[in-house]
Simulated scan of single mutants.
Amino acid sequence: MATAPCNPAPRPAAGSSTLSERDFARIAGIISEHTGIKLPATKHLMLEGRLRRRAGLAGFATIDDYCAYLFEEGGLKEEFQHVVDVSTTNKTDFFREASHFDFLAERIVPALLAQGAANRTIKLWSAASSTGAEAYTIAMVMAELARSNTGLRYAILGTDISTAVLESARRAIYPRPMFDPVPPALQRRYVMFDNGVGESGRARIVPELRRKCGFQQLNLMDKSYPVDRDVDVIFIRNVLIYFEPAVQNAVVTRLWGHLRPGGHLILGHSESMIGTRMGLPQAASGVFRKDPN
């Protein structure tokens, strides 16, 4: 996505560089309507800081000027994706809630192979992929399994509403400390480190894994998703907590429809009750298996 200013010539300051309650409410309403994500009052300062940076990049001296452009001068259409990008939370880590990846390696994939999946491509989907740490963690797990299962084929899709985080996911370059949760053996095989140390260091996922992961934009609020309906495993973790219960149910129902019979839907541990509330068959904490019949 282009990051060129929408107004290349900076304007003189004409207002405050703090986010007013009125403008916060306007943006929160837009984000809720478009993405289903709730922005409570506790997010006001976070959003203010991000909007201040975006306003500067767009050529505005203050947040007031930027919001006036959005809401009074018709600029929202042009800036809409940027507003979505700065308003959404993109917390992600490698091997976050590691028990789910253990379950993938020890239970799900062996069962798929026993059922003949070695003759096809196993499909995995990170449905709120953020900057890609979850998708690349899945790729590491699958690559390790492929080392002892000749012919194992897999493909990973990562989707997110934010184009900014999708760009980061495709680059697959991260601060070195982000890889601390990755076991040393996997770091040696799947991560390329530069010469920096600490916060100044960077590292990149190896090309072999980057080729296994594709990323595309997707809004979970859409009524249908342009994704295959024979996915083996869908990860949708730690994003449903930002939705109202009715939206949670609708999103899970749509995702469930993209699983092949016997496929697994994996929710965050704190979201497990959503699946149980909906009566989905549970295989482990946060893991739900679609009836194979």
Rank of each mutant, 00 (worst) to 15 (best):
E134V: 04
D102T: 10
F193L: 06
P110C: 05
R210P: 02
A28P: 09
T163Q: 10
T92K: 07
E78F: 02
D232H: 15
S200A: 14
H264L: 02
M278P: 03
R189L: 14
Y174P: 07
D194V: 06
E79V: 03
D64P: 01
L259W: 09
V247E: 10
D65N: 07
L255D: 01
R11N: 07
P184Y: 13
A246S: 14
E244K: 13
E271W: 06
A284P: 02
E21C: 08
F103W: 15
L220H: 00
I63S: 02
E244C: 04
L255P: 02
T131L: 05
N149E: 11
V233Q: 07
S87M: 05
L51V: 08
E73F: 00
I108F: 07
S20Y: 12
G263T: 07
V165L: 06
R229S: 14
L152K: 12
K91Y: 13
R153Y: 11
P226H: 06
S16F: 00
I37P: 01
V83I: 15
W256C: 12
Q217R: 13
A133E: 12
V239M: 09
V231F: 06
A135L: 06
G196L: 07
V252P: 02
A9N: 10
D232G: 08
F71T: 04
E73L: 09
F288L: 03
A114Y: 00
P207T: 13
G116T: 11
D180S: 11
D85W: 04
G15M: 03
F103Q: 02
R171V: 14
M192V: 11
A185K: 04
G56K: 09
R22L: 01
L166W: 02
S20A: 03
A98Q: 15
H82K: 03
D160M: 07
Q115P: 03
F80C: 08
A128Q: 05
G198V: 06
L280C: 05
R204N: 11
S270V: 01
T3K: 04
T89K: 06
T150M: 11
V287T: 04
L166H: 04
N293W: 06
G15W: 01
A128V: 00
H82I: 05
L220S: 12
H264Y: 15
V182E: 08
A139N: 11
I234L: 03
K43P: 04
A14V: 03
D23F: 03
F288G: 01
A2N: 15
Q115R: 05
N219L: 08
G151T: 14
R120I: 08
G74F: 01
R176M: 11
T3M: 10
M221L: 12
A68T: 12
V247S: 12
R211C: 12
G29M: 13
P181E: 13
S32K: 15
S126M: 07
G151H: 08
V84E: 03
T159R: 01
V191W: 02
P261R: 12
K212P: 01
